[in-house]
Amino acid sequence: MQFFDNARLDIARQNLNRGRYQAAFEIFYELAVHDLDEEAQFALTKMCFDGHLDAEQIAKLFEWVNSNSSLGNGYAHFNVALMYERGMGEIKQSYKTAIEYYEKAIKEDVVDAYCNLGNIYALGLAEEQGIPRDMYKGIQYLAKGAEEGSRQAAYTLGCLYEKGEFIPQDHRKACYYLVLATLAGHEQAHRVLIIFQHTNKGDFNKEFDDAEMQYGKIQNMRRLYKCL
């Protein structure tokens, strides 16, 4: 769930929730372009993926994030990567291009880019485009993202270890990553963790403690960045 502190962001969110997509787009776009507001950028991209933007708006958004990415804006890199990964509007799907932009986003400290890269490699999403599946590389990206603070990476990795479908099942690692994602506010991870605790009766206190310790480190680093 996104939290909007800025009054205009809150107005845009209200318009979005009421289905007034044009009004929401205009406010989010203005904040993204003029204030370089990261929450507005993510909101625009989510609107795009949820099918709330028309072709003209998608083209306008892509033109801006693509030009802005040349300035070293990590979230613009991330959004461009997402658009290429999904093939939005008139943008042809290209995992190769998406990977390039995700790697740029990582260099600009966008931790969720680790998760998207990890999924591409671990799940073999780009195999049809000639990029082979690489489970080891995918898990590395997901683990790095989780340790850096991506709750989605932690949730994804927790589910992978719990299911044991693509990688060897490991309940202890599953617990650790699900707790880490839950502490970061991932609601689905919390639900999965509750089910995990009901179905696995072992002693997972160490995994809970380790996850809490890592989450504390992540929060401390975020506070440090804000002070710099």
Rank of each mutant, 00 (worst) to 15 (best):
F208V: 09
F28Q: 03
L157E: 11
R151Y: 14
G216Q: 03
H77L: 02
Q14W: 05
A122M: 13
L125M: 10
E128G: 12
R20F: 12
L142S: 15
L117Y: 12
Y161R: 01
H52F: 09
A181G: 05
M213N: 09
G51E: 07
C115I: 00
N6Y: 00
T156Y: 03
G158E: 02
G185C: 03
M47S: 02
K137R: 14
A189P: 05
L71Y: 09
I139L: 02
R133L: 04
Y75V: 12
L160S: 07
F204D: 08
G185K: 00
N220L: 10
G89P: 10
D54I: 00
Y155N: 08
D35F: 07
Q197I: 06
M1C: 05
W64Y: 15
T182G: 08
A55V: 06
S69A: 15
E127K: 09
I120E: 02
M135V: 15
Q14H: 10
T156K: 04
E39Y: 13
V80D: 00
E187W: 00
I27H: 08
R222Q: 09
Y29P: 08
A143C: 15
V111T: 10
T156A: 09
G124R: 03
R172I: 11
T199I: 08
R222K: 10
Q22H: 12
A81I: 04
D54M: 00
A143K: 14
Y225E: 15
D112W: 10
A76L: 01
A146R: 00
I11K: 13
Y136Q: 14
G19R: 05
V192F: 12
K163N: 15
I11P: 01
E212M: 11
F28T: 03
S150Q: 04
L9A: 04
F78D: 13
D5S: 08
I167Q: 09
G89K: 07
F62I: 01
E162Y: 14
L82D: 02
R151V: 06
K206M: 07
Q22R: 14
R86Q: 11
Q197L: 13
L160Y: 06
I91G: 05
E207P: 08
T199S: 14
I131D: 10
R133M: 04
L125K: 06
F196K: 01
I139F: 00
L9I: 04
E148R: 15
M88H: 02
N6V: 04
R172H: 11
Q14C: 09
C48D: 13
Y29K: 11
Q140K: 13
G19E: 05
T45K: 01
I99M: 00
A81T: 07
G118H: 06
Y75F: 14
I120T: 08
Y215P: 12
Q169N: 10
Y121Q: 01
N73C: 01
F3Y: 08
T45F: 00
N15S: 06
M135P: 03
M135A: 11
V111Y: 08
Y225R: 15
V65S: 06
R18S: 10
S70Y: 06
L36K: 15
L44I: 03
Y95L: 03
N205A: 15
K104A: 06
Y29I: 09
P168H: 03
D112G: 11
A184C: 05
A43Q: 07
H77F: 09
E30P: 03
L180H: 06
